[in-house]
Every structure is written in structure tokens, then in C-alpha cells.
Amino acid sequence: MKLEFENKEGLMCSKCRLLLEPGKAHITYLKSTFPVELLTCPKCGEVYVPEDLALGKMQEVEKNLEDK
């Protein structure tokens, strides 16, 4: 399946020095896992999490899982 986004900014994996490529990653919260499309390193599989994602959806999930 061809993914619909690309690495326009030329982001590289700091460890492998390779250009990140569009790929599928799996996000796991507690017992739920679901796939998302993110830029990943073709060698080590490291995933790039953009800032808006970290401060947006990720934080929203954390808030909803948060305890009192």
C-alpha cells in the first residue's frame, strides 16, 4: 500500500544517518494497539513524532487515561 505522505523536510535518523521514510508504526496504550502512519527509519525503525502530535493527540490520550 502506498502511503500518502512524504519526508518533505528531509528528516534523518540521527543514529543511522538515513532519510526517514513514510511507514506504519504501532501505538500501544495499555492493552490497545493501533497502527498509524509516521516517518520511520528504514534501518532501525525509530519513529519521528512531530511536535503537534506529541502535544495534541498523545497528550489527549494521556489526559483521558490519567488517574485522579
Binding site: 502511503l3 500518502e4 505522505f5 501505538i27 496504550y29 490497545s32 493501533f34 497502527p35 498509524v36 502512519e37 509516521l38 502530535l53 495534541g56 493527540k57 489527549e60 490520550v61 483521558n64 487515561l65
Partner: peptide, 22 residues
Amino acid sequence: AESTEYNFSEWDDYIQNLKSNS
């Protein structure tokens, strides 16, 4: 859809599920 570049539909589903089906 907030982004045309990334597909987060299942993530969005998960958030909505956390909110309304808790």
C-alpha cells in the same frame, strides 16, 4: 481530518472511544 499528510484515523477513534465509552 486534521492533517492531509498523516493518517491518524484509528488514533482519533481511540481518543473518542476513551471519552464516550468509558
